[in-house]
Amino acid sequence: MLNTGNNGTPSSAPQHASPKKSKFIQKSLLVIAFGLFAGAGAIAVVQPQNEPVVYQATQALDLPAGVTPLGSLSTEPFIHETRIRRGDTLAGLLQRLHVEAPGLQAFLTHDKNARSIYKLYPGRALQVALTPDNDLLWLRYVHTPADTQKGEAVSKWLEVRPDGQGSYVATEQSLAVETHVQMAEGVITSSLFGATDAANIPDAVALQIPEILGSKVDFMKDLRKNDRFRVIYETYSHQGQRVGAGKILALEFENQGKTHEAMWFAPDGEGGGYYDFAGQSSQGAF
C-alpha cells in the first residue's frame, strides 16, 4: 500500500533495511575476515616437521694378526737412506739422515778403518739405523754396490757401530748380491746409445754391444734407421735394489737386413767367450 502525500503523488523517500539484517551482514563479514586472518596466521606460524631421528651403530673389530695398533710402542729400529749427490759433504749427509751421534763425524774423518767414506761417490747409498730415542745402531756406506770377487758378484760396504764405550768401530763388509736375467730390445732411430737409453738398458751393458759384434758391424758407419736388436744380460741387486749390471748372455742384432748373433759360453774351468750359432768365435771373446 502506497503512502500518499498531500498532493496525492507517491512518496519518493528511500526505503531502509531493518536493523536486524544489517547486524547479521556485519557479523558475517567479521567472521569471514577473522577466518582469513586466522588462516593466514596459522600458515605463517606452521612449525617445521621434527628432524628425523638418526640412529648410529658402532662395532669394535679385532685387528688382523700381525697388525700393531697405532700408538703402541715399537722397539724396531728406524732405517733411513739417502743417495749421495754431487757436492754433498759428510756433515750434510749426517744432518739429512737426522743423525745426532756425538763424535761420529770426527771418528769417520780420522779412523783409518773408515777411509772408504773419504770418497763420496754420487749415486751411492748411505744408510743409518736409529732407535726410537734417535740413538745410532749402525751406519752403512755402500761404496761398491757390485763387484766381481772370485767369479762371484758381491756388494761391499763400510759399517760403523757404537762400541759401547763412547766411541765407534768401523769394519768392511761384503755379501754376495742376487743375480737376475733381464731381456730388452730396441730400434735404432739415431744412434746405438740413443736406442739403448730408450730401452732402459744400463750403460755398462750398452758398451758391450760394439765390443762383441765389432768385427761384424761398424757401429760408426754401418748403422741404419730401423735396425733392431735384442739383448739378454745380467743385473745385480742388493736388498731389493738394483746395484749394477753384469755381462751380456745373448745378443741378436739386425743390421741392414742381416742378422748377427752372439752367445756367452764358458766351459767348465775355463774362461768364457762369445760365439755365434755356428760356433764361430766373435770379437771380444774373454
Rank of each mutant, 00 (worst) to 15 (best):
R86L: 11
R83P: 02
R96N: 07
L90A: 01
L108S: 09
G92I: 08
L108I: 14
A125N: 12
P102W: 11
V128E: 14
H110E: 15
F107N: 15
F78D: 10
F78W: 07
R83H: 00
G103I: 14
R96H: 04
R86S: 12
Q127G: 04
L90E: 00
F78K: 11
R85Q: 12
Y118D: 15
Q95C: 03
N113R: 10
E100C: 02
H110T: 15
K112G: 07
L120G: 02
S116N: 15
L108P: 15
L97N: 04
L93P: 03
Q127P: 01
L90K: 03
A106S: 13
Y118V: 13
I84L: 02
K119Y: 13
P77T: 04
G87F: 01
A91Q: 02
Q127T: 14
T89N: 00
E76R: 11
E81M: 00
D88N: 04
I84H: 03
R124I: 05
D111M: 02
E81V: 10
L94I: 07
G92R: 00
L104Y: 05
T82I: 14
N113C: 08
R124S: 09
R85W: 10
V99F: 04
N113H: 13
G87Y: 00
A106Q: 15
L93M: 06
P122T: 13
N113D: 14
Q95E: 07
T89P: 00
L126R: 01
E76D: 12
I79P: 05
Y118S: 12
V128Y: 11
L120T: 10
Y121C: 03
Q127Y: 02
A125P: 06
L90D: 06
L126F: 06
L126Q: 06
Q95N: 14
E81Q: 00
G123Y: 07
V128F: 13
K119L: 14
I84R: 02
A114W: 10
R124T: 01
L97F: 01
A91F: 05
F107T: 15
H110C: 05
G92C: 03
T109N: 11
G123C: 04
L93K: 06
A114I: 06
L97M: 00
A125S: 12
L93E: 09
